[in-house]
């Protein structure tokens, strides 16, 4: 592989700007406990760390394995060099979203619209049958929902992609 040709110097600063990332010595502890390493293609956390460190920008942008992570955080626990691989996975996803808006998860649009990805607070009959009170959710409180939306609209991911959140 021609690293001169295909690498972006300092990509890591743009993706996951922590000093400890460079302590990764490819030991693969992060992979051995990872549920999604059983996937096809497998999530190989250490390979992702390599791509970030070596600046393989195109390869990293096209890699969808970070999205298979189950967030169990075993890699964070077990990594002997404190690289914080789970936080790296989230950082790679964020970087991919910044560089390719089609990757922005639709879940954030749902949260903007109703506060949740699930329909919380509308199953009144079922809740009553179980002896549960009505939930005071933001979904049923237009004033609070509007304040929540106004707050989110000031964040970069939402304002940069505001067309996704309208209508």
């Amino acid at each position: 592989m021609d690293l001169q040709e295909g690498s972006t110097k300092d990509l890591w600063k743009d993706v996951f700007n922590t000093g400890s990332l460079h302590y990764c010595f490819n030991c693969s502890t992060c992979v051995s406990g990872c549920p999604a390493s059983h996937g096809d293609p497998p999530l190989l956390v250490r390979n992702l760390a390599r791509k970030v460190i070596l600046g393989l920008e195109e390869e990293l942008l096209e890699d969808d394995t970070p999205w298979a992570c189950v967030s169990c955080s075993r890699c964070d626990e077990m990594c002997p060099m404190n690289v914080m691989p789970f936080e790296m996975i989230l950082a790679i996803r964020q970087w991919q979203c910044r560089n390719d808006e089609t990757l922005v998860p639709s879940a954030i649009v749902e949260i903007y619209k109703r506060g949740f990805t699930q329909a919380v607070g509308v199953n009144t009959e079922l809740r009553e049958s179980l002896g549960l009170p009505q939930l005071h959710t933001i979904t049923n409180n237009p004033e609070q929902l509007e304040l929540f939306r106004e707050m989110l609209m000031k964040t970069q991911i939402v304002s940069d992609n505001d067309y996704m959140f309208k209508g």
Partner: peptide, 26 residues
């Protein structure tokens, strides 16, 4: 006691995967 007007935690597949600023705000 109830958490009136709480919102999504936010789930790891949502703001934490898209933008740290919006994650922290939520």
């Amino acid at each position: 006691v109830d958490a009136d007007n709480y919102v999504c935690c936010p789930a790891f597949g949502s703001f934490p995967s898209a933008d740290e600023e919006a994650w922290m705000a939520t």
